[in-house]
């Protein structure tokens, strides 16, 4: 074969072409695997993570007594239930120092949560441990799926997985 480097003895040359096909297949496969890996990592990076929107079950009660000034906000659509002072008005308040101010629904919300000393106090004028009261500090809370048992009234639908894996006892629906 004149004009071709491919004399039978030419270094590297595989006249049958079988090696070439194998090598090409291996390269395509490797490239594909590496590409898939890249795609997987990029997806893992940018796929929004649904945070476990923690039901801070006792958040209401956790807040310093005069919590949630917003609740008093007439514009608010939530049931006005708490004794209202702005937090800043009582900066030093801690649950125990202002027992009267505490929103008691804790008991309703997290029955078990009563490890803390304060919650026993129930002399809250408005707040009764009614179902709506507790979680309700956001009226729409019950409407949210159990996945997002947040007491965060502004709770947006949480993308993807939010794990309600530990179901927080919720007093909704009495």
């Amino acid at each position: 074969m004149s004009g071709l480097s491919g004399t039978p003895r030419a270094v590297f040359v595989d006249p049958s072409g079988r090696r070439g096909r194998t090598v090409r297949r291996v390269m395509w496969t490797l490239g594909l695997l590496v590409g898939l890996y890249c795609a997987l990592v990029v997806v893992a990076l940018v796929l929004p993570v649904g945070m476990s929107r923690l039901a801070v079950p006792g958040l209401g009660p956790l807040l310093p007594g005069p919590v949630a000034p917003a609740l008093a906000d007439p514009g608010s659509d939530s049931a006005p239930l708490a004794p209202l002072t702005t937090p800043s008005a009582t900066p030093s308040t801690t649950p125990s120092t202002t027992p009267a101010a505490r929103v008691s629904p804790t008991q309703a919300t997290v029955p078990a949560a009563t490890t803390e000393p304060a919650p026993a106090v129930v002399e809250v004028p408005v707040a009764t441990p009614t179902p709506t009261a507790a979680p309700g500090r956001s009226a729409e809370a019950p409407g949210q799926s159990a996945d997002a048992p947040g007491n965060d009234p502004t709770a947006k639908p949480v993308p993807a997985s939010t794990h309600a894996a530990v179901p927080t006892p919720r007093p909704t629906k009495g």
Partner: peptide, 15 residues
Amino acid sequence: IGLTGGASRPAAAVP
């Protein structure tokens, strides 16, 4: 702060 269930939950399968 009174969160009896703790502040962490098992992550879902996807995350």
